[in-house]
Design a protein around this nucleic acid. Structure first.
Lengths: 336, 336
DNA sequence: CTGAAAGCGCTTACAG
DNA sequence: CTGAAAGCGCTTACAG
């Protein structure tokens, strides 16, 4: 039975009080440098590990940040949000925080059950990764805890959101297609499903407007139902010469569908999309897409979260992260 | 400023002590059913959330389980271990535990720095997901905390391990190739890299032995260096008619290499592999593989971890999870 | 069935 | 620079 290594144990060795040990170990004023060093040395020697539970009890902080993800986003093995979550956890770790991930099951989302990590006071703040049902978010927003939304935002809400600049990237991608001579361009995505898809649609729309083209509702192909479940893609009767797909996976599916129906990509139809995920590189041809600069998004989210924990009043609004277009082989100049 | 909702607040409303509230809320003996119900009702009404830090301080348990993953396993977006981790977290959640994920960076692994979640006493036990350096594991094994290895084991160690029955699945896969008439079969993988790869090799070996075939060292193609970094696949000079690849990703790469060199798959060369990941379905042809039954693995790991937390003495040894062969299009009968 | 008391290991405000 | 005291919110062993 090893003896317990707590601050008292260290204090005893030096005939000082735990107060002094606490100050020394936490680099607070009120200890001589010499004593501080000795105490730190002893802590090392004894293998002292601070008791976070005790600290939390006093400070009401536990140095954990929660990451909440809806189950529907992480159903498939190659789930994009898992890797984002992994990056967040690394970033938190660099700042001496731990990441506590919770997966929100559909029934709990439906019932508006608040996350366990909140109910059990295990976290100092919550990062919501990916859009949730509006009714759920309304409930979530009533809780008094630093919170940020990552990769989506909500129109009616004041919660800070870190999002990629979908609107502008989509505008740029569409302009690039227009410059290639495409006169009729379709959009793939349920534009009422998430803020990302809607913004990508609006950037697309802006480009068309700028080129004096009236968008055609028949050129919008939905890809998922209201609950986010994927549906089959129905190509328009009159085919455009290019599509902007709301994400790589949809572009991937679209290209397969197009090929099945005898279209050559990009010979007959160009396709561009967003996210720079595995789907953009395993596709034939490889897909021109937008890299969302996840690293930057994650860095920003983490930095802001930690600031909010230390100063809950401060707000940051919608923080946009610029995307980078990755040119590949799925789009080309439209021959006249 | 909302008033604090702690046990004392609930106690005051009923003119009882916090002891009684504690007993009532934790379903312990020593409270009348009537009072217990009233107290629970009040807790609900006030939105009481138990303070885990206080509880932890007394009980030395915090109802968190750590999941440790090496960074190299989660570098790519489609990282298999992320989805395993997600499943573990869901399972833990069903048992009122939270999952705390930590990504072990190469420098920390090299230096043998123990995981922060351990040093900071944030977890009751640690699940190590995927093999780590031997020197690191030796250090890890000195710490006094329930620990299990998932998806790998270590020869010299007594840590409980939950692993898929790689040996037997590989044996079965190889036998199936032999039954298809293949007389020369290669193996793709660095057989000194992880226990999984080695066991898959040994199952392969067993099948060959059973069919009276001496394994040929030239037929073993390494896929990664000692640090787990992928290397180019060098095909044997004398080609076999089939390969057993140690995982889908390698099979995927192998098929591309084979095609580049003019081989038809499965016409000239059959390929089978393991894991049933996205690589097995995006490949052309789709790859015959083994599903590791992750759900069962995760359930078992979680159940055992919780048991170990409550009874640290008990050991479980190596627990094998049976795989399921998924027959697809990458292997076929060898014509005589 | 109920509660007073002690204590988990720390931090903070204050006194010296 | 140093420390005694109080207290964070619970749980546990014990007494009634």
């Amino acid at each position: 039975m090893k003896e317990k290594v707590n601050m008292q144990a260290i204090a005893s060795r030096h005939n000082v009080s735990v107060v002094t040990v606490s100050k020394a170990l936490n680099d607070k004023d009120g200890v001589s440098d010499e004593l501080r060093e000795k105490i730190k040395q002893t802590a090392d020697d004894l293998g002292y590990r601070p008791n976070h539970a005790a600290r939390s009890l006093k400070t009401q902080k536990n140095y954990n940040v929660g990451i909440l993800i809806a189950n529907r986003y992480v159903k498939s093995q190659e789930a994009y949000y898992f890797s984002v979550c992994g990056e967040i956890i690394k970033k938190l770790s660099e700042n001496n925080y731990s990441g506590l991930m919770e997966i929100l099951m559909p029934a709990d989302e439906e019932a508006g059950r608040l996350p366990r990590m909140f109910l059990e006071r295990k976290v100092d703040g919550i990062i919501v990764l990916g859009q949730l049902q509006e009714s759920y978010l309304r409930g979530l927003e009533t809780i008094d805890m630093p919170m940020i939304y990552v990769d989506f935002y909500v129109n009616y809400s004041n919660i800070d959101a870190i999002i990629s600049d979908n609107f502008f990237s989509s505008y740029q991608m569409t302009v690039s297609l227009l410059e290639q001579g495409h006169k009729s361009i379709g959009f793939i995505g349920n534009i009422f499903s998430t803020s990302s898809i809607q913004d990508r649609y609006l950037g697309f729309y802006k480009a068309l407007l700028e080129w004096q083209m009236e968008p055609d509702p028949n050129m919008i192909v939905s890809d998922r139902d209201g609950l986010g479940e994927l549906i089959d893609l129905k190509l328009p009767k009159e085919m455009p010469t290019a599509f902007v797909a709301n994400c790589d996976q949809m572009a991937y599916r679209l290209i397969i569908t197009l090929k099945e129906q005898g279209y050559d990509v990009p010979g007959d139809v160009s396709v561009v999309s967003f996210d720079n995920t595995i789907f953009s590189t395993i596709s034939h041809p490889k897909i021109t897409t937008v890299d969302n600069n996840v690293t930057e998004m994650v860095e920003t989210a983490t930095r802001i979260m930690i600031k909010k924990i230390n100063n809950p009043q401060k707000t940051y609004g919608r923080v946009l992260i610029k995307g980078t277009i990755i040119k590949r082989d799925s789009d080309k100049t439209k021959k006249a």
